[in-house]
Amino acid sequence: MPLHPEARAVIAEGEAAAATLEPGALSPAEMRERFARSWRPPRDPAPVGDRYERDIPGPGGNLRIRVYRPVGEGPFPALVWFHGGGWVIGSLDENEATCRALCRGAEVVVISVDYRLAPEHPFPAAAEDAFAAVCWVAGHGAELAVDSRRIAVGGESAGGNLAAVSALMARDHGGPGLVLQLLASPVTAPPSEDRASYRDFAEGYFLSKASMDWFFEQYPRSAADLVNPYLAPLAAEDLGGLPPALVLTAEYDPLRDEGEEYAHRLLTAGVLCELARYPGQIHGFFALLTEQLSISAVAHERAVSALRRAFGSDLGTAGKPLTTTEGKV
Rank of each mutant, 00 (worst) to 15 (best):
Leu3Ile: 12
Leu3Trp: 11
His4Gln: 09
Glu6Tyr: 08
Glu6Thr: 10
Ala7Asn: 07
Arg8Tyr: 08
Ile11Asp: 08
Ile11Leu: 13
Gly14Ala: 12
Glu15Thr: 15
Ala16Trp: 12
Ala16Thr: 13
Ala18Lys: 13
Ala18Cys: 13
Leu21Asp: 06
Gly24Pro: 07
Ala25Ser: 14
Ala25His: 09
Leu26Asp: 15
Ser27Phe: 07
Glu30Asp: 15
Met31Asp: 04
Phe35Pro: 05
Ala36Arg: 15
Arg37Lys: 14
Ser38Met: 11
Trp39Pro: 04
Arg40Phe: 00
Arg40Glu: 15
Pro42Cys: 00
Ala46His: 01
Ala46Asp: 02
Pro47Ala: 05
Pro47Arg: 11
Gly49Leu: 02
Asp55Lys: 13
Gly61Lys: 05
Arg66Asp: 00
Tyr68Ala: 00
Arg69Gly: 02
Pro70Lys: 13
Val71Phe: 14
Gly72Pro: 08
Gly72Glu: 08
Gly74Glu: 02
Trp81Ile: 02
Phe82Asp: 08
Gly85Glu: 13
Gly85Val: 07
Ile89Gly: 03
Leu92Met: 01
Leu92Gly: 00
Arg100Asn: 04
Cys103Phe: 01
Arg104Cys: 00
Val109Arg: 08
Asp114Leu: 08
Pro122Glu: 08
Pro122Gln: 14
Pro124Trp: 04
Ala125Trp: 02
Ala126Lys: 06
Glu128Met: 10
Asp129Ser: 06
Ala132Ile: 01
Val134Arg: 00
Cys135His: 00
Trp136Arg: 03
Ala138Asp: 02
Gly139Thr: 02
Gly139Arg: 09
Gly141Ala: 09
Ala145Ser: 14
Asp147Lys: 02
Arg149Val: 00
Ile151Glu: 02
Ala152Arg: 07
Ala152Gln: 11
Val153Asn: 09
Val153His: 09
Gly155Ile: 04
Glu156Asp: 15
Ser157Lys: 02
Ala163Leu: 01
Val165Cys: 06
Ala167Trp: 01
Ala170His: 01
His173Ser: 12
Gly174Lys: 07
Pro176Thr: 05
Gly177Gln: 14
Leu178Gly: 10
Leu178Tyr: 06
Leu183Pro: 03
Pro186Met: 06
Ala189Pro: 01
Pro190Tyr: 03
Pro191Cys: 05
Pro191Lys: 04
Ser197Lys: 11
Asp200Trp: 03
Glu203Thr: 12
Gly204Glu: 06
Lys209Cys: 03
Phe215Thr: 06
Phe216Asn: 07
Ser222Trp: 12
Ala223Tyr: 03
Ala224Trp: 07
Leu226Tyr: 11
Asn228Asp: 15
Tyr230Gln: 06
Leu231His: 14
Pro233Asn: 09
Gly241His: 10
Pro244Ala: 15
Val247Lys: 10
Glu251Met: 11
Leu255Asp: 05
Gly259Tyr: 04
Glu261Asn: 03
Tyr262Asp: 05
His264Pro: 00
His264Cys: 11
His264Leu: 12
Leu266Ile: 07
Gly270Val: 12
Leu272Ile: 02
Cys273Trp: 03
Cys273Arg: 06
Arg277Trp: 08
Tyr278Leu: 14
Ile282Asn: 09
His283Gln: 14
Leu288Ala: 14
Thr290Arg: 13
Ile295Asn: 01
Val298Pro: 00
His300Ala: 12
Ala303Arg: 05
Leu307Tyr: 06
Leu307Cys: 06
Leu307Lys: 10
Arg308Gly: 05
Gly312Asn: 05
Gly319Cys: 10
Pro321Glu: 06
Leu322Ala: 10
Thr324Tyr: 02
Thr325Pro: 09
Glu326Asp: 07
Glu326Arg: 13
